[in-house]
Design a binder for these strands. Structure first.
Lengths: 152, 152
DNA sequence: TAGTTTTCTTGACTCGTTCAAGAATTGGTG
DNA sequence: CACCAATTCTTGAACGAGTCAAGAAAACTA
């Protein structure tokens, strides 16, 4: 675990100018996995109170385009960002609260890249989303309905 | 291939009232796979010109909730609907034009349901989206840049 | 340090979708 | 066949994430 990623170096390496908003956004995404845009704006403004939301949108797009961060967006959710890139991992999403967790690729390396019939598409990535219920929501549901009977 | 699915029967079976907007929406989704809401509205209005967009939204939600149709929404796309349900198939999405194709589950039956580490989530579905380039967009790209050189 | 280009600020705006209240329709019952 | 209650549809407004556009500010280059 790198305790202090060299953000300026990362930006330069991606061909991007090093600016304070960009450092702040990059830092925010590294510190808060799966944060949505609003959360990123909030975190960024803790250090740079006057950053415009537009700047954050621009930066997030630039970072995503250069591969420094990854954008994920499960159905029914707003855009979220994470700093784990290049390792082809996937996500579990809770149907109840929308919580997201990381999941390493299940079947070895790049299993799903082999579709049974690719319709002539040139496939370059397989994105997997596991839908389910997180422990918290499961406990809540069990609490509300402990079992089939036992209700007044 | 069923040429004439019994839509009224399907609605009743799902515990829904049989109304003209619902029959029209169900028919539209069956006739146009992966259509977005706007397309569905357009198709529905060919037969029922005065249906409100709100009714279509309501019906699509009701049909999705009862499992008669499925809603898919790749990142950066609006909501789309399809009538293939219950067979756990997946999708290829073109990065260029957003075209969607169906893909049968690659590794047997329910492969991806086994995540390497489920974070304590109770997983009930694995959704796979293959990202790539459709034949049309590939041809267009090849046309614009036939090879590395050969440009003036 | 000056110049050029990229990036950020400000403010308005779009689009898909949802909310709310009342009118119309459906399916069941006498 | 007529009536009733519940559901569904119409109308019209509203919301929120994200985008567009123009000018000011900052970052790299020489």
């Amino acid at each position: 675990m790198q305790t202090t990623p060299d953000f300026p170096q990362m930006l330069r390496g991606a061909g991007l100018r090093v600016t304070r908003p960009r450092l702040a956004v990059l830092g925010a995404v590294h510190a808060h996995a799966h944060a949505d845009t609003d959360t990123v704006i909030g975190v960024v403004r803790q250090g740079l109170p006057d950053v415009s939301h537009q700047a954050v949108y621009d930066v997030l797009r630039a970072l995503t385009a250069t591969g420094l961060i990854r954008r994920i967006q499960p159905s029914g959710s707003v855009a979220r960002y994470e700093s784990r890139v290049g390792d082809n991992h996937h996500h579990v999403v809770c149907r109840g609260c929308g919580a997201i967790g990381d999941v390493d690729c299940a079947v070895g390396h790049a299993p799903c890249l082999l579709a049974s019939d690719d319709n002539g598409f040139a496939i370059d990535e397989a994105e997997v989303i596991y839908w389910g219920t997180c422990p918290d929501c499961a406990a809540e549901a069990a609490d509300a309905a402990p079992s089939v009977d036992a209700a007044t």
